[in-house]
Computed example of a mutant assay.
Amino acid sequence: MTAPGSEKALRLQNAADPFHRLKEITAILREPDGCEWDRAQDFHSMKEGLLEEASEVVAAVESGDPENLKEELGDLAFLVLFYCRLAEEKGLFRAAEVYEAVSDKLVFRHPHVFGDLQTSDQKEILKNWEKLKEREQRARGEEPRFGEKTGHLPALIRADKIQSKASRKGFDWKRGDLASIFSVLRSEIDELEAELGATYEATDSPLSDMRRDRIEDELGDLLFSVVNLGRHLAVSSERSLHRSTEKFIERFRRLEEAASTEEVNPFGIENEAERLGALERLYQKVKSDRGH
């Protein structure tokens, strides 16, 4: 009698290529004598893992490490096939249909590559992409609605995507008109400041729902305008904020290290004004030590 493990190993040896080998591994993990953990998963239980793996791909891109990127792309590819396997088990669709559908969609939406459309202008390509997407929706009996299917995105990415969509429909600032964008930015800052009032102080007392909504509205308008500026500068607001957050983390760690070597650790000063003053002086020193 052949051992179960040997049978599984033979199935992997007979896989036609790496893609089919991974697909076979995914199937084996879900089978009755497979992995109990994998067998216990469903569409919903794997959502967080899917988001985590996608984030790790992004982190690998940022790291510039090709080996790390290869590994993280593999993890993400496995989850795509895992979801396909779950769908196959429920009789919803086959993995092959997923790849066939996306292939057909890419060919349809690239008529400048696979068809007769003559253009190499990126803005024109994106405009045509949106038109073809809307045509697909109408063919399915759906009426396209601006901004739909974007609510799941991180806020900065969603704002940039929405602004870009509006721009492709012709609603945007004139290219290079940064003066107008900065004017709007200043106006939004003024509106937020006016809403807060000259005597506003953050306290432990909860804000009324109406007051919180008004402040969130004004702060949101300001952030939306900042994203607009980044878009016109061809700079990702999401990536910019991520870089600044990482920079602050690195500086704050050095601040903590420097504070621990002080005769009196500034973090331990009870007087708020003195503590903040001492920490600010030390923070500026930490910044200047690295040149920025």
Results as ranks from 00 to 15, higher is better:
Ala234Lys: 01
Val226Asn: 04
Glu246Tyr: 01
Gly220Phe: 14
Glu216Leu: 13
Asp213Ile: 07
Leu233Ile: 00
Asn265Gly: 04
Ser244Trp: 15
Ala198Asn: 13
Ile189Leu: 09
Glu216Trp: 10
Ile189Asp: 04
Ser244Gly: 08
Ala258Tyr: 07
His242Lys: 01
Asp204Met: 10
Gly170Lys: 04
Asp221Ser: 10
Asp221Lys: 04
Leu233Trp: 01
Lys247Asn: 04
Glu246Phe: 00
Ser240Ile: 12
Leu255Pro: 00
Leu229Ser: 02
Ser244Lys: 12
Ile181Met: 08
Ile157Met: 06
Glu195Gly: 07
Phe252Asp: 02
Phe182Lys: 07
Trp173Lys: 03
Asn228Met: 07
Ser225Trp: 03
Glu216Asp: 12
Met210Ser: 04
Ala159Phe: 02
Leu196Phe: 11
Thr261Gln: 11
Asp213Pro: 10
Ala202Tyr: 12
Ser183Arg: 11
Asp177Ser: 03
Ile249Thr: 10
Thr245Met: 15
Asp190Gly: 15
Ile157Cys: 08
Lys161Phe: 01
Leu223Arg: 15
Leu185Lys: 13
Lys174Arg: 11
Glu250Val: 09
Asp177Ala: 10
Glu238Pro: 02
Arg239Lys: 11
Ser244His: 11
Val226Ile: 13
Arg253Ala: 07
Val227Ser: 02
Leu196Gln: 14
Ser240Phe: 07
Pro206Gln: 02
Ser187Cys: 06
Leu192Val: 12
Glu201Ile: 08
Lys169Phe: 05
Arg158Ile: 00
Phe248Asp: 11
Ala198Thr: 13
Ser244Thr: 15
Lys174Ile: 14
Ile215His: 10
Leu255Arg: 02
Ser208Gly: 15
Phe182His: 13
Leu207Thr: 07
Val226Met: 05
Glu246Met: 08
Glu201Phe: 07
Leu219Pro: 04
Val227Asp: 00
Arg186Phe: 10
Glu216Thr: 15
Ser237Gly: 12
Lys247Ser: 06
Tyr200Trp: 14
Phe171Leu: 04
Ala202Phe: 09
Ser164Asp: 13
Glu188Ile: 14
Arg251Trp: 01
Tyr200Arg: 11
Ile189Ser: 02
Gly170Trp: 04
Glu188Leu: 11
Asp213Gly: 10
